[in-house]
Nucleic acid binder design. Structure first.
Length: 1067
RNA sequence: GGGCCAAUAGCUCAGUCAGGUUGAGCGCUCGGCUGAUAACCGGGAGGUCUCCGGUUCAAAUCCGGAUUGGCCCA
């Protein structure tokens, strides 16, 4: 690529990005960049694996873009960064999608299809989804190792999970146990709590009388799940609550009912009793130990009847609601189960994994539980146990997140990692990681870890990593000491009875379920379950490194230096990694966490299919391009706050990039014409002017600040700093000032210094923007550096501030000067004197020495920018004649001094106008207004000047600190009018040159016909200036030229222009 | 139901920790500039700081409560 080639007039993201993609391919940009840092210090970044279903949405895009930005930045800082992407490919979501595709309804269909066939289908589906995602990520310009992602379905990764699990087992933290779980009866597997979704459903609401065994009367309970009464084991009361026995009468018959005292009226009304009498009052504690007969004893002969069943116990989940007595089935509900365990009661669960009653349910065997509700209600009624029954009671019901089937609570055998045994260690290990923001770690995360129960890692499914536990075929004791846990493929090959090759063996269920182990005469078979997918990703830090298959890199790199995910991962990946890392290795597997938010729609609502407010990244790219989309995403804070999507802001980013593009293309024609070569100029020795030195100093400051922001994981602020430098400092100021020097024909040291300065600024700016907008950075870098630079901007070092150029004092001075200029422009406008017309003088009243010094040192710049003949500086303490003064109050001092009157005093001060800026004169003015004397001090007051009519004055400030006032003297003189009119003519001739589409170098002849003799004379005085500016060879009659009538400040003039060459040709 | 986070101009956000007459960019509008020109410069309008209470001479800011939205947990 040769240098300073002409470029598009307009920043065109799409064409540019397509070209850059091709260019990257052509020069192997990604590989070269990695190679370039191969000897650098290692940095172990770990990608949180997205789940391979669906395509990349805005949240995923934000996440990957953040990762890409930090990886690119770290590479520029010299690190050899691990950038292996990962994909989470196992699990129920994929199984259900494949089931749908194959038209399956339940597990039996899968069994018929064949486990291995089903697993193959899942694998193929997951791979297809992965390809789609990967294409999306590449198209965002994310540079990761796409040729070699880690996949949770590969044997070496599955082995990493086995290895970790075996370590956990060695620490004695694995156990089989019964737990009350959410079961999806269709998927026939446990569902994690957070995988349960809720919706409102109508359910039965029944009051049931449990007949007491050793005394008259019944306990009254209420439930919305009649089918769980089959498994009733005890009734719970609140030990501290008051209960009553009432004799209730209906249809002439009286019966004794026991309910909470507070519930009597409601229960009896519900049961349509006509009358009642309280005959007993007793505390809940007194009822403990009462026995009752199971209301469905006849239909369920094998109902819970072991020692302790069928009795009343206390439980803390009881409230004085409904009846104050709670039917409890430890075989179903979670609280019931836990209380049952405490009481050492039997766990009776007559329901299979498919939600169908087993033989233990007697007459109901073979029926789906919820379908049996009506029959059970009928049986209760027939047995005289039903006090009341209603349908359609609205409650929140959990359903399976994948297939929407209503869940049932069951107690089943599950495998656990008993993280509650190492809770203190987990909490300690939290301290070893640094979070951004840290408050998320100390509040949200810590609370979650403190409350976390044991981790149920088993799922009764197919598409997952098989749990590597083998138990004896004959009766297993339940002790882990009597089970075998396998940690690696090699160990598997050594121990199993069958002949397998550890290099090639697939570890999925279809293969390993057939493998048996025989040791000491006992044969062991693998337990059927697979791991919860959260266990898969929990081992990502070593899975990324293909450990334990290879251990060198693990020894060198582990634990991870950085992970970046959204806040939902506090209970997800941040937690699962902490749990697994601590249980297996005693350490948290990551050092730093950057926790970002979610991508919401423009109203701050979640993007969802049902609302129809999803913005696809593809659409954003189509509308604005990749770099603008990335800039928008990266301009959002990456720490905890959710992002509100905004098309406007994305469009704004495109505009900002267009400004960068304009800044870049502006000097190209001049540099090209002059054959500028940056290598020939040593900027430090070049004849730089103050403004060059200023912009170079600003560049150093920007670099310093950006680096600090990156260190704090605030890339949004770094980007903001850079863009405002490009827009405010370079485009709106430096380029404006430096233009005239570039127009210089012939060689000039000043022009060369300007070239070299702008070149340096651009070269480093594109390096600074490279992590954010990699495409446009590449394009500009390539054009600027040609063969002299790296093959890609992404190989550049991160620009470090150069002390030689860093001059904060100069920056401060120019900041003041720019404030003066801005105020001066404002004053000019108020005086209705356009910039083309010179003014005789500008007067700057500086409030302090520093400001005065700044104005003095930037005198040349200011007079030029304000087009003033002279600049007069009023030193601090001095005042300019003909000014009066107004006062502004400092409320922080007025408040404490005057209390309730502070507001009135302030108003009086604001209204005052005095001849001299002293407290005494002000006090007098305030007294006039208020009618009472007040004591003011210097500190309470700030005086501002008021200008006479013939002069316009505007105060100037830097960041809100007022520093002084600029006065524009707009009085006219002949000399000024002469130049003013001349410049009006110049501007119009220039426009006409443009109308004619003349070449920059083209010489012209100009004919001026001005209606006003005085003005015509004034203009003639500046004929030389006009000729020079518009490249006119002569003034005189123009025959066939471009002719136009103008009105300038009320004066009619006719101007004609023709090219000299054209005129000669026609002669 | 509980925990954490957010709410400030039409839009995106700063200001909240250390209370003192609310700021920026964009958009809108009026004007200027015109060899970067779909660029650039200046002016202006636009806010009950979500609401209700409290503390204080003074609250966007501190405290309590509510509403709405987000994540997580039950």
């Amino acid at each position: 690529m040769s240098r300073f080639e002409p470029v598009e007039d307009q920043y065109e993201p799409h064409d540019l990005e397509d070209e850059v993609f091709e260019y990257w391919d052509a020069v192997d940009a990604y590989e070269q960049t990695k190679q370039h840092r191969a000897d650098g210090e290692t940095y172990f970044f770990v990608d949180g694996p997205p789940y391979t279903s669906g395509s990349a949405h805005m949240g995923t895009t934000w996440n990957k873009t953040l990762k890409d930005c930090y990886i690119r930045y770290l590479r520029m800082q010299g690190y050899d960064v691990t950038d292996r992407p990962g994909y989470d490919m196992h699990g129920l979501p994929i199984e259900t999608k494949v089931e749908e595709k194959l038209g399956f309804e339940n597990k039996k269909d899968i069994e018929e299809f064949g486990e291995q066939n089903f697993i193959d289908e899942c694998k193929q589906f997951a791979e297809e989804q992965l390809d789609g995602l990967q294409e999306d990520f590449k198209s965002f310009g994310v540079w990761m190792d796409w040729d070699d992602p880690y996949k949770t379905v590969r044997p070496e990764y599955m082995e990493a999970a086995w290895w970790g699990f075996e370590k956990v087992h060695e620490r004695g933290l694995v156990e089989q146990g019964k737990r009350s779980i959410n079961q999806c009866p269709r998927c026939e597997t446990a569902i994690a709590n957070n995988e349960v979704e809720y919706h409102q459903v109508g359910k039965p609401s029944i009051y049931v009388k449990f007949p007491l065994a050793e005394r008259d009367g019944s306990l009254v309970i209420w439930t919305t799940t009649p089918w769980t009464i089959v498994a009733n084991t005890f009734v719970a009361v609140d030990g501290d609550l008051d209960y009553v026995g009432v004799d209730a009468t209906k249809d002439g018959e009286t019966e004794r009912l026991y309910v909470a005292k507070a519930c009597v009226e409601d229960v009896l009304k519900t049961g349509r009793y006509e009358d009642y009498e309280v005959v007993e009052e007793l505390g809940g504690e007194e009822m403990v130990g009462w026995t009752y007969d199971h209301p469905l004893a006849e239909q369920v002969p094998d109902h819970a009847q072991a020692e302790g069943s069928g009795q009343v116990y206390t439980a803390d989940y009881v409230e004085a609601d409904r009846t104050g007595l709670v039917h409890s089935a430890p075989g179903h509900g979670e609280e019931d189960f836990e209380r049952g365990q405490e009481l050492d009661l039997e766990i009776f669960c007559p329901v299979g994994n498919d939600g169908v009653y087993t033989d233990a349910a007697g007459e109901y065997a073979g029926e789906f539980v919820r379908d049996a509700n009506d029959e059970i209600i009928g049986d209760l009624d027939a047995g005289g146990h039903l006090l009341s029954s209603e349908q359609g009671h609205s409650v929140r019901e959990g359903q399976c997140w994948r297939c929407d089937t209503d869940i049932v609570r069951l107690v089943t055998d599950q495998w656990f990692i008993t993280v509650t045994d190492i809770k203190d260690e987990l909490l300690d290990n939290i301290e070893d990681s640094e979070w951004f923001p840290q408050s998320a770690r100390d509040n949200r995360f810590r609370d979650f870890v403190a409350d976390s129960p044991d981790w149920n890692v088993s799922r009764q499914r197919y598409w997952g990593i098989p749990i590597p536990i083998w138990t004896p075929d004959d009766e297993w004791s339940g002790e882990m000491a009597d089970a075998i846990v396998v940690g690696t493929r090699e160990e598997l090959a050594e121990r199993v009875d069958q002949d397998i090759d550890p290099e090639t063996v697939d570890l999925h269920k279809g293969t390993v379920d057939d493998l048996t182990i025989t040791e000491d005469g006992t044969t062991y078979t693998r337990v059927g379950d697979v791991f919860d997918v959260w266990l898969d990703s929990s081992v990502a830090t070593w899975g990324t490194l293909d450990f334990p298959e290879h251990d060198e890199r693990f020894d060198e790199l582990w634990p991870a230096d950085l992970i970046i995910e959204a806040h939902d991962q506090t209970r997800g990946w941040f937690w699962s990694q902490l749990g697994m890392g601590t249980a297996a290795l005693g350490e948290v597997p990551y050092d730093q966490v950057l926790m970002h938010g979610w991508a919401l729609d423009s109203d701050g609502r979640k993007m969802s299919k049902s609302i129809g407010n999803i913005v696809e990244p593809g659409e954003a790219i189509e509308r604005h391009g990749r770099d603008p989309m990335r800039l928008f995403l990266l301009s959002q804070t990456p720490q905890e706050d959710d992002m509100k999507f905004s098309w406007e802001e994305m469009a704004e980013m495109q505009r900002r990039l267009n400004i960068l593009w304009n800044v870049f293309r502006f000097p190209l024609p001049y540099m090209r014409m002059d054959e500028f070569d940056p290598a020939d100029v040593d900027l430090e020795d070049a004849e730089t002017e103050l403004v060059d030195e200023w912009v170079l100093s600003r560049l150093q400051s920007v670099e310093e600040t950006m680096t600090e922001h990156f260190a704090d994981f605030e890339q949004d602020k770094a980007l903001d700093e850079l863009l405002s430098f490009v827009v405010e400092d370079v485009s709106r100021f430096y380029v404006q000032v430096v233009r005239e020097r570039m127009w210089d024909e012939g060689d000039s040291a000043s022009k060369e210094a300007a070239y070299a300065t702008l070149y340096r600024v651009l070269e480093e700016t594109v390096a600074l923007i490279a992590p954010f907008a990699p495409f446009v950075a590449e394009e500009i870098y390539g054009n600027l550096t040609g063969e002299a630079g790296h093959d890609t901007v992404h190989m550049c070092d991160w620009p470090e501030p150069d002390e030689f150029w860093h001059d904060p004092d100069l920056e401060g001075e120019v900041e003041v000067a720019r404030a003066v200029e801005e105020a001066g422009s404002n004053a000019r406008q108020q005086a209705e004197r356009s910039l083309r017309w010179p003014i005789t003088r500008v007067v700057v009243a500086a409030d302090d020495d520093e400001t005065a010094a700044a104005v003095e040192s930037q005198r040349a710049l200011l007079t030029e920018r304000l087009n003033a003949r002279d600049l007069e500086l009023i030193e601090p303490g001095e005042s300019w004649g003909e000014l009066s003064y107004a006062a502004e109050a400092d409320m922080s001092l007025l408040g404490p001094e005057f209390g309730d009157d502070a507001g009135r005093v302030m108003n009086a001060m604001n209204e005052a106008s005095v001849d001299e800026p002293t407290v005494e004169t002000l006090e007098a003015a305030v007294e006039d207004t208020l009618g009472e004397a007040v004591d003011l001090t210097e500190e309470m007051v700030e005086f501002v000047t008021q200008t006479p009519d013939d002069v316009t004055g505007v105060a100037f400030d830097v960041d809100g600190d007022e520093l002084g006032v600029v006065y524009i003297d707009a009085g006219l003189t002949e000399d000024i009018e002469s130049e003013g009119y001349a410049r009006e003519v110049i501007r119009r001739v220039q426009e006409m040159r443009k109308d004619l589409d003349l070449d920059l170098e083209e010489r012209i002849r100009v004919d001026l016909d001005i209606d006003d003799d005085r003005v015509a004379d004034l203009v003639r005085d500046h004929e030389a200036l006009i000729a020079d500016e518009v490249r006119a060879d002569e003034f005189g009659p123009v025959e066939d030229g471009h002719r136009k009538e103008w009105e300038v400040e009320g004066v009619e003039m006719e101007i004609a222009v023709e090219a000299v060459a054209a005129a000669e040709a026609s002669d």
